[in-house]
């Protein structure tokens, strides 16, 4: 288990010493109990730093912003950014390093281990504590959480309220770090792709019905794309931002513009959008499930990415986010790749 005081001390050391520009971490929210991302620029601010099972956010997202901000500065501060990462987030850092999007010198990684449990799922917590006001959730040494409500403290078995992805997690402690807190913790889930099984056992018709119902809900707010630490393209293939159409745009010009996906949130276009996103994240998604959390329409987006993670493991024996030196999944091949589906 990570002692919060140790984390604060480590953060304070690097911030006071000037090793890092600032630290991206978590703090208590103004309302509710789910921790929110926070940026700590001064050592004295660090008192607000927290680490508990409500720190669900993948902070690697903000490395993207940092990079973009730096590109716009004439004399950027070249010191690294301190970042608090969980096991899954550390793999996201690895993927960005593997793709040469960021350099190792640009980040100072404060790794925190999730221990025996993981992050809570807000929806599950709300369901479990119907109507009660929660002020704090803490890790325990065993596989449970201590939840503080207005009616006192209760110990809840982790399985009841923690996120599905955490039950399938194999990297509870960060795989890349400058400082590691909470020690190594090895987890061996019985079935790392268990949540997919129900889906896969369905018939084609049932699968289609399920996805049609789910993806028809999509309003194309692109929250999934905005929150994804891997979606860093300057221009997305589904946005036609440099293909602006004005009232006086001639018809011939419009006809020449490639429109892969229409902007309207109709079922067929939603399918193309989500499948393109899934394909683009194949071999890159670290299953932080932020897309699913951010989705205002409760679409189980994680499934699509998890499915491709499973296939890349099964077909190509590729693990995402462990080795920064190997080429990425779709920019490499092996002679023995399966081809039994090819005529």
């Amino acid at each position: 288990m990570v002692a919060l005081e140790d984390l604060k001390q480590e953060a304070k050391n690097v911030l006071e010493g000037g090793t890092v520009k600032y630290i991206i971490g978590y703090k208590k929210p103004a309302v509710g109990f789910m921790a929110v991302p926070a940026f700590f620029h001064k050592p004295e601010d660090l008192d607000a730093l927290v680490w508990d099972p409500t720190c669900v956010h993948n902070l690697v997202l903000f490395l993207k912003d940092e990079k973009k901000k730096k590109l716009g500065q004439k004399e950027p501060d070249e010191r690294p950014v301190g970042i608090v990462v969980k096991g899954c987030d550390s793999r996201a850092v690895n993927v960005l390093l593997q793709e040469n999007y960021i350099d190792r010198e640009n980040v100072y990684i404060l790794g925190v281990s999730c221990g025996k449990t993981g992050m809570v799922d807000l929806k599950k917590v709300r369901k479990y504590f119907k109507g009660k006001i929660i002020s704090q959730i803490d890790f325990n040494e065993n596989e449970s959480f201590t939840v503080t409500t207005t009616e006192g403290k209760v110990e809840v078995p982790a399985a009841d309220i923690f996120a599905v992805r955490c039950t399938e997690c194999i990297t509870a402690s960060p795989v890349i770090h400058d400082v590691l807190l909470g020690g190594d913790s090895v987890r061996t889930p019985e079935n790392p792709f268990g949540s997919l099984e129900e889906m896969e056992s369905k018939s084609q018709g049932q699968k289609w019905d399920f996805w049609q119902e789910q993806l028809t809900k999509c309003i194309r707010c692109y929250a999934c794309r905005s929150i994804c630490p891997m979606c860093y393209c300057d221009e997305c293939v589904v946005d036609t931002i440099n293909f602006a159409v004005y009232p006086d745009t001639p018809a011939e010009e419009k006809a020449q513009k490639i429109k892969w996906v229409e902007k309207s949130p109709t079922t067929s276009e939603n399918f193309i959008y989500h499948m393109v996103r899934a394909i683009h994240l194949a071999g890159r998604c670290v299953d932080c499930a932020e897309c699913e959390r951010a989705c205002p329409m409760d679409i189980p987006l994680r499934f699509l990415n998890k499915k491709l993670e499973k296939e890349s493991k099964k077909l190509f024996d590729y693990d995402v986010g462990y080795d920064t030196e190997i080429p990425s999944l779709i920019s490499s091949f092996r002679d023995e790749d399966p081809e039994d589906f090819i005529r």
């Binding site: 889906m199 896969e200 084609q204 018709g205 049932q206 699968k207 289609w208 019905d209 399920f210 996805w211 049609q212 399918f271 499948m275 899934a278 394909i279 194949a282 699509l304 499915k307 491709l308 296939e311 890349s312 077909l315 190509f316 999944l329 779709i330 920019s331 490499s332 091949f333 002679d335 790749d337 399966p338 081809e339 589906f341 090819i342």
Partner: peptide, 21 residues
């Protein structure tokens, strides 16, 4: 070879969302 890998993934994905393989 690159194509083989990519198409294998897409095939699995299309299958997963319920399109006839």
């Amino acid at each position: 070879y690159y194509s083989r890998r990519r198409i294998a993934l897409l095939k699995e994905l299309l299958n997963f969302i319920g399109l006839e393989p």
